[in-house]
Amino acid sequence: MRIQLIICALLCANLNAFAQVGKTTSGNPVFPGWYADPEGIIFGKQYWIYPTFSDKYEKQVFFDAFSSADLVHWQKHEKILDTSTVKWAKKAMWAPSIIEKDKKYYLFFGANDIQSDQEKGGIGVAVANNPAGPFKDHLGKPLIDKFYNGAQPIDQFVFKAPDGQHYLFYGGWRHCNVARLNQDFSGFLPHADGSIFKEITPEGYVEGPFMFVRNGKYYFMWSEGGWTGPDYSVAYAIADSPFGPFERIGKILKQDPAVATGAGHHSVIQVPGKDEYYIIYHRRPLSETDGNHRVTCIDQMTFDEKGFINPVKITHDGVPMKKITK
């Protein structure tokens, strides 16, 4: 019996290896498990995805990360940050956003889902010497722990502008703020008008802000609808500066009843040196009704001749193998 088990294990391993060798597209979801709010980014010649662990708030007490050299084969990096390191975080660790600065990696995150200024929690920042961590609490307290301009301190996105200035876009409860980060990410610098948190909320905004620059234009994107429902989606605007004004153009990512529902809370990565873009997002499989059951997916994102984003087709296949050559 033992010999049979060993033979079976060897055969299964060989079959799995063959399947991995023969795999040429990412497939959707790109890796197993319940994960949402994914931020995709490139460090060196590796693609990285940092998602929320999608479960009940009380179980959202850590972050995993995933890396790949080709968008097809992904390596899991477990518990790069958790509540044992962030003493003020107790639950609902959400929507990590990461950036490299001065050979260190800064991971911004939300925690505790605070509902008022009197509760402990908000947006924090952790730091590590490499993108796989381990990360440590950078400040020992939240970076933002109050509601400014009506924005719940969640869904943070750190953005480096072409001039080198780092900004933090964030906000739930249908309000979005932008703030200028200082040099060591311990606080903020005032805007030209003296304000710290400038509201830039576009029409239809709910949560999940994201920004990128293409051909000198600032593309500002966000999620609309309810995150537990099928109407969750992504819309965008284009402006000449990171402050807008942002006038809503329309939706570019939404459910396909033949594929999945609740497609939203996304990020975008550009292949270095090429006008090729991928959108990384979460969605809910058709067989799932639990609001917490979300998976991370990736599909191609393209533009028309005027620079507008074409509607994204969500797929089961995902994207073809793509290594970073620059």
Rank of each mutant, 00 (worst) to 15 (best):
residue 215 N to K: 13
residue 234 V to C: 13
residue 253 L to V: 03
residue 240 D to G: 11
residue 215 N to F: 13
residue 187 G to L: 01
residue 268 V to A: 14
residue 180 R to N: 13
residue 252 I to L: 15
residue 177 N to I: 09
residue 236 Y to Q: 00
residue 181 L to H: 02
residue 210 F to K: 10
residue 188 F to L: 08
residue 208 G to P: 09
residue 231 D to R: 08
residue 267 S to I: 07
residue 268 V to C: 12
residue 208 G to F: 12
residue 270 Q to D: 11
residue 242 P to I: 10
residue 266 H to Q: 14
residue 176 C to G: 05
residue 272 P to L: 03
residue 257 P to F: 05
residue 205 Y to C: 04
residue 234 V to D: 12
residue 180 R to W: 11
residue 261 T to N: 11
residue 250 G to N: 09
residue 197 F to W: 04
residue 213 V to I: 10
residue 214 R to Q: 15
residue 264 G to I: 02
residue 176 C to A: 15
residue 241 S to R: 00
residue 180 R to P: 15
residue 209 P to E: 07
residue 180 R to C: 14
residue 258 A to I: 08
residue 211 M to A: 10
residue 241 S to T: 09
residue 197 F to P: 01
residue 201 T to Q: 06
residue 194 G to Q: 12
residue 221 M to I: 14
residue 201 T to R: 05
residue 245 P to Q: 09
residue 213 V to K: 13
residue 233 S to F: 08
residue 191 H to Q: 08
residue 243 F to C: 15
residue 257 P to G: 10
residue 186 S to Q: 08
residue 187 G to E: 09
residue 201 T to E: 01
residue 215 N to P: 14
residue 198 K to H: 07
residue 182 N to I: 06
residue 194 G to P: 10
residue 263 A to R: 00
residue 184 D to F: 06
residue 236 Y to E: 05
residue 198 K to V: 02
residue 237 A to W: 05
residue 217 K to N: 10
residue 246 F to Q: 06
residue 197 F to K: 00
residue 181 L to P: 00
residue 246 F to A: 10
residue 178 V to N: 02
residue 180 R to F: 11
residue 214 R to F: 15
residue 257 P to W: 02
residue 196 I to N: 05
residue 189 L to P: 01
residue 187 G to F: 04
residue 239 A to G: 11
residue 263 A to V: 01
residue 268 V to Y: 08
residue 260 A to K: 09
residue 206 V to S: 03
residue 197 F to T: 04
residue 206 V to D: 03
residue 226 G to R: 05
residue 212 F to S: 12
residue 222 W to F: 09
residue 203 E to T: 12
residue 232 Y to E: 06
residue 225 G to N: 02
residue 227 W to P: 08
residue 250 G to I: 10
residue 210 F to H: 15
residue 222 W to I: 04
residue 190 P to S: 07
residue 269 I to W: 07
residue 254 K to D: 15
residue 270 Q to I: 08
residue 211 M to Y: 08
residue 242 P to Y: 05
residue 234 V to L: 09
residue 213 V to W: 06
residue 253 L to I: 08
residue 177 N to Y: 10
residue 247 E to D: 14
residue 178 V to R: 02
residue 228 T to V: 04
residue 256 D to F: 06
residue 221 M to C: 14
residue 183 Q to F: 00
residue 225 G to P: 06
residue 220 F to V: 06
residue 245 P to W: 01
residue 186 S to C: 07
residue 245 P to C: 02
residue 238 I to M: 06
residue 240 D to I: 06
residue 220 F to K: 00
residue 260 A to V: 11
residue 269 I to S: 08
